[in-house]
Design a protein around this nucleic acid. Structure first.
Length: 497
RNA sequence: GGCGCCAUCGUCUAUCGGUUAGGACAUCGGCUUUUCAAGCCGAGAAGCGGGGUUCGACUCCCCGUGGCGCUACCA
């Protein structure tokens, strides 16, 4: 059964930076919705008040915007199913819990943390898998209600019944589980008297999905085990479960376990955006993590992904995050940019990382960024590399160490000689075009009876003070005549010392 | 430990019973060459093990093994 207009959502809890895994889930949801002409909504599951922060919400919003994943409905954009923050609809969860109690699907539990811990310990000692005994089930509802209103701390637990259950996942296929294995789980936690009761994940998630008319729940496979509990909850509430699609988990490049916050790049904003990855590359790369298009093509724009994406082609196996492939893809996308576009994208990084650049007037910043884009486009992997790779062009002067000035098997006096010859020839040259410069320097080498490298290496080193840089002729032309001659002179002096 | 999911080159993956098992990243080699890249060309590299089913299994089934996930008054 295909729903004509599907509604999907991402429901991150704002308890940290916008995570790569969350972004991938967001992308698949968005692609699914756009492909079918449905809606993509963003809501925050912020009921964990200990850990939820507004900064985190902002980071997620910023990351989503940067990636170009625009939600149709969200806390900021609003929508007809508002509010989109769980803390703003606490009453819904309380009412749902009350309905479940009234219908006999849930009950108050007065067990203390100590009692629960003791129970668990006893079970573990007996080598039984821990599971709540359900002892508060037998408290008569009227008595429970009295104790509750008398102020006794209580949680609400959902009554698990039904033995073996299964559902069909759009990615994983049939998933079965024996519900007798887990005890009655908590859906509403205990709070101080007078405070509004806070729901737990399973309840809040399900109530919201129902309230927001979500048709397809597309999320990480780490949530697969909670699905049957959620289906039971929905049925007890009298609702119809959505379709489920569980996405394979993204694993750490280390090969051990899932992505780790401390050793792996996981933050969309901090580790990817701020380090000079292109959103186009991120989108393309993430799409290929757990999904593959028909055919052997691998570069896809966001629009093309929308066109090609189907859940049927999502893979079941977990995928290891491969940073090298992302870098390759990023370099590729940098190369597809026009020089103007690259120059625009480079500027924020140049301003951020180079004081020299930041001190320039805006017009000169644009001109320099343009020049850097032209000269560096072929060798950039990330945008933040331009400051280092282009230092020779950004800074007014360079100070090459003497040993860098020496070509293969070249002494200081030999290198000095080559530099002087090059300087002399260049000083008299008016035509500063690259082909002409090349002919000229090759002539210098011929006149000195040496290979081209014997002249070109010292010249390039003198001009850039870098072991690696664009070619000499490009450098000469980018720098211009007078600055080039000054740098050659400076290098000659360095070698003479 | 219990439960669940998964299993093709080092990595991401294609293959929907019959292919010389294809592509990409990475690696190695070559071309180019003034350095480093980029680009182009080429090479090596895979069906976890054991049973079935079938004329025929990477593909379907079972067992084993391994990996991952879940196992909270976190989500």
């Amino acid at each position: 059964m295909i729903t004509p207009s599907p509604r999907v959502r991402i429901a991150p809890s704002p308890t940290g930076t916008f995570h790569l895994g969350t972004a991938r889930t967001a992308l698949f949801n968005e692609l699914f919705a756009r492909h079918l002409g449905g809606q993509f909504v963003l809501r925050f599951e912020d009921t964990d008040q200990e850990r939820s922060t507004l900064e985190s919400e902002q980071d997620i919003v910023d990351g989503l915007a940067w990636l170009g994943l625009i939600a149709d409905e969200s806390p900021t954009a609003g929508g007809s199913y508002a509010p989109y923050r769980q803390m703003e609809r606490l009453d819904d969860y309380r009412q749902a819990a009350e309905r479940l109690i009234a219908s006999g699907h849930a009950y108050y539990c007065f067990c203390t943390a100590e009692e629960l811990a003791a129970e668990r310990q006893a079970q573990e000692a007996a080598h039984i898998s821990p599971k709540y005994s359900g002892r508060c089930r037998s408290i008569p509802p009227t008595e429970a209600a009295e104790r509750k209103s008398a102020g006794e701390p209580a949680v609400v637990r959902f009554k698990v019944t039904g033995g073996s259950r299964s559902f069909t996942d759009l990615v994983m296929g049939t998933v079965a589980e024996d519900t007798d294995l887990y005890g009655d789980f908590v859906i509403l936690r205990s709070v101080e008297a007078g405070e509004p009761p806070l729901p737990l994940y399973n309840l809040a998630n399900v109530v919201d999905d129902q309230a927001m008319a979500i048709t397809h729940v597309i999320r990480g496979a780490d949530l697969l085990p909670s699905t049957i509990k959620q289906i039971m909850l929905i049925e007890a509430l009298g609702g119809t479960p959505p379709a489920y699609a569980h996405l394979p988990v993204i694993l750490s490049p280390s090969g051990k376990g899932k992505m780790s916050k401390r050793r792996d790049p996981v933050s969309i904003t901090r580790d990817f955006r701020d380090r000079g990855y292109l959103p186009e590359a991120m989108i393309n790369f993430m799409a290929l993590l757990g999904w593959a298009p028909e055919g052997e093509r691998e570069y896809f724009s966001h629009t093309e992904l929308v066109e090609a994406f189907t859940l049927e082609r999502v893979n079941k196996a977990n995928a290891v995050f491969n940073p090298a492939k992302l870098e390759h893809m990023n370099g590729h996308y940098i190369r597809t940019l026009s020089v103007e576009a690259l120059s625009e994208r480079l500027q924020p990084f140049l301003r951020r990382d180079s004081q020299t650049f930041a001190a320039l007037p805006p017009v000169e910043q644009r001109a320099l960024a343009q020049q850097l884009a032209e000269v560096l486009q072929d060798r950039l992997i990330r945008l933040d590399e331009a400051v280092g790779l282009g230092a020779w062009l950004i800074e007014a002067e360079v100070q090459p160490p003497a040993n860098l000035l020496l070509g293969k098997k070249q002494t200081a006096s030999e290198a000095g000689l080559m530099l002087q010859a090059a300087h002399a020839a260049l000083a008299e040259e008016a035509d500063w075009s690259e082909p002409n410069l090349e002919a000229l320097l090759r002539n210098v080498a011929a006149a000195q009876a040496v290979g081209a490298g014997a002249v070109l290496w010292p010249v390039r080193a003198a001009l850039t003070a870098q072991a690696a840089s664009p070619g000499v002729f490009t450098v000469l032309s980018a720098l211009g005549k007078e600055p080039s001659l000054a740098r050659l002179k400076n290098a000659i002096d360095i070698l003479a010392e």
